[in-house]
């Protein structure tokens, strides 16, 4: 155990903890918007896969990472749009349509992967950028200010999302629509439009979350490479009490434990690796059980809106 508490290892754990939080943050912040407006999108994982594949394929063909990222966002948008059509306009059961969307994303990304790529290839993804001055701070500079673009983006997203939700007219509409869509409707708020916007935004961010894997963290695409990260993201939204800062806390906790267990394996500490891999997930279950924030849950979550019903 002692070998875990050396300075380089601790630095390593913190550094990877922050890095690993990236995809969860994009996906969970996106999901936060959707859920705050009353739509539970369980298809996040499938959207991430589509984003990861599309981003990777475009980046590889064009040798332009930003184009790849844009492609991932576009793929996420289309997947989000599909979810919105099914769950908002057609008012399908949200849980079921989300699972459907997830399986669709898994199947389609696998198919496209096999047809267009055939085998696993890797690319040179987004590289770390050391931020001037801040990056020179001993230790902290290495932990916080020596990351790639997508990591910075993910952490910037938290205050931005918080600001949008709490300080803008759009955010007020989102919160109202998720709590009492009838009330919002009677004040002339377009409930359908708001929900489409948040679900599509959630799709875009989930697409970017996928790209953060294939273009920045792992730099390759393979079948089902998210292995359920999207579902963890959904859990993080609950854990974070539907608030961006809470989601950040959850994402960091989860990814730190994840980083810890990786280092446990790297250092060959005598814990069966299967147990080590389980640690973050067990922690998630425990945390969700005890977070007890049901009261904060948007009242209209999973409920389709129909005008005139009270």
């Amino acid at each position: 155990m002692a070998e875990l508490f050396t300075l380089p290892v601790l630095l390593g754990i913190f550094y990877s903890g922050i890095r690993l939080a990236t995809p969860y943050l994009y996906a969970a912040i996106g999901e936060t918007f959707a859920q705050r407006s009353g739509v539970l999108n369980l298809g996040v994982d499938g959207i991430m896969l589509m984003g990861a594949y599309t981003g990777f394929y475009i980046a590889m063909k064009t040798e332009n990472l930003l184009l790849g990222l844009l492609g991932a966002a576009a793929a996420g948008f289309l997947m989000g749009l599909l979810m919105a059509v099914v769950s908002v306009s057609l008012q399908a059961e949200q849980g079921i349509s989300g699972i459907g969307l997830n399986l669709f994303g898994l199947g389609l990304s696998t198919l496209l992967f096999k047809v267009t790529l055939g085998g696993v290839e890797s690319i040179r993804g987004f590289q770390p950028i050391r931020i001037p001055l801040l990056g020179q701070i001993p230790y902290l500079g290495d932990i916080f200010f020596n990351h790639n673009l997508l990591v910075y983006g993910a952490f910037l997203l938290v205050p931005i999302a918080n600001f949008i939700l709490n300080k803008t007219t759009f955010g007020l509409k989102v919160r109202a629509v998720g709590q009492n869509p009838q009330a919002a409707d009677t004040l002339g708020v377009n409930v359908t439009l708001i929900r489409y916007t948040t679900v599509c935004l959630g799709g875009i961010l989930a697409g970017i979350a996928g790209a953060s894997l294939s273009l920045a963290l792992i730099n390759l695409f393979q079948e089902n490479m998210t292995s359920g990260m999207g579902f963890i993201a959904v859990a993080l939204v609950y854990f974070g009490g539907w608030r961006p800062w809470g989601v950040l806390g959850g994402a960091l906790l989860f990814s730190f434990v994840n980083a810890l267990q990786l280092w446990v394996q790297v250092k060959g500490i005598n814990i069966p690796s299967d147990i080590a891999v389980m640690m973050p997930y067990i922690l998630t279950i425990i945390a969700l059980t005890f977070s007890g924030r049901r009261a904060r849950q948007p009242q209209a979550l999973t409920k389709p809106f129909e005008r005139g019903e009270n």
């Binding site: 007020l172 919160r175 009330a183 009677t186 004040l187 009242q299």
Partner: peptide
């Protein structure tokens, strides 16, 4: 037609 988790001001400003 009020949103319980919003304040009075927010409910008035909505929309």
């Amino acid at each position: 037609m009020l949103v319980p988790d919003l304040t009075v001001v927010e409910n008035v400003a909505l929309g």
